[in-house]
């Protein structure tokens, strides 16, 4: 009897160990695989506020490096013109997250070049008007669209003072896993949120700018490059009259 009992205990211990190994192992594996992306397991906090300073003096005429980099990084270059579409109409329908704008001062005639994108307002009008809450602002200052609950009403596009948003007018065959996109939803610059959430600290447009016109970083950290630059150089918000406290600032415009 006792022998049988001992065998039973041994069998039991073996079984338990095996079960434990099977159930714990994936956790250990998962843990080790995601160790670099640890922040994703925690909610985003407002300790950080992402933002940028753009120096219009450094932004060069005819250069569209930031635009191309953004298109590539966020899969916008994968959005093809549908067959049979009118090319000039499609140009006005295709999505753009960042664009190059040239301005002429009405008094002096001085020409300025600058990139325009979502300004990541602290009080974004697009978030105010969105009926479902799809348009939202993260605690770290990034304004973006939850594509699962965007109904495609485009009220945010009516409300954005910067014309920063794009509606997806056609089926998208190919997309990047970190930037899913679907016909009938609205989207805009999200400061390369997939990079930031994976521990990176730069945006694609900043990396691509050969002229160092874009300084990106944490506005809440007084030691960050962007905070230092903002302290050093005079800067403005576009449509400062609306008091939206934008995360994107400009100097020399």
């Amino acid at each position: 009897m006792s022998k049988v009992e001992q065998q039973g205990r041994r069998e039991f211990l073996k079984g338990t160990a095996a079960t434990a190994a099977i159930s714990i192992a994936p956790g250990v594996m998962l843990h080790s695989l995601t160790a670099d992306a640890a922040p994703r397991t925690e909610a985003v906090t407002d300790k950080v506020r992402w933002g940028m300073l753009i120096d219009a003096n450094k932004c060069a005429d005819g250069c569209t490096d930031c635009v191309s980099a953004c298109d590539k990084e966020n899969g916008l270059d994968l959005v093809n013109m549908p067959e049979g579409a009118d090319e000039s109409l499609w140009e006005r329908q295709r999505p753009r997250w960042i664009r190059q704008v040239s301005l002429k001062d009405n008094l002096s005639g001085k020409i300025t070049h600058l990139p325009m994108m979502c300004q990541h307002c602290e009080k974004p009008p697009c978030v105010d008007v969105c009926p479902t809450g799809a348009s939202f602002r993260r605690a770290d200052g990034i304004v973006m669209v939850d594509r699962h609950i965007c109904i495609g009403c485009r009220y945010c596009m009516m409300a954005c003072p910067y014309k920063a948003r794009s509606f997806i007018h056609a089926e998208v065959a190919e997309k990047l896993t970190h930037t899913p996109r679907g016909k009938g939803c609205v989207e805009s610059c999200n400061l390369c949120v997939h990079r930031l959430d994976n521990g990176q600290t730069t945006t694609a447009c900043q990396d691509a700018c050969q002229h160092q016109a874009i300084v990106f970083g944490d506005l809440n950290d007084p030691e960050s490059a962007v905070s230092q630059a903002l302290k050093k150089y005079p800067s403005v918000q576009i449509r400062a009259d609306l008091k939206l406290n934008t995360g994107v600032r400009y100097s020399n415009i």
Partner: peptide, 25 residues
């Protein structure tokens, strides 16, 4: 005319009460 008319149910279940659109529903 919505981009996602099939998501009408979402408009009925997710509300942002600062939106005049949501009040209109």
């Amino acid at each position: 005319d919505l981009g996602q008319p099939g998501r009408l149910l979402i408009a009925m279940t997710h509300y942002n009460f600062k939106s005049i659109f949501a009040w209109n529903i």
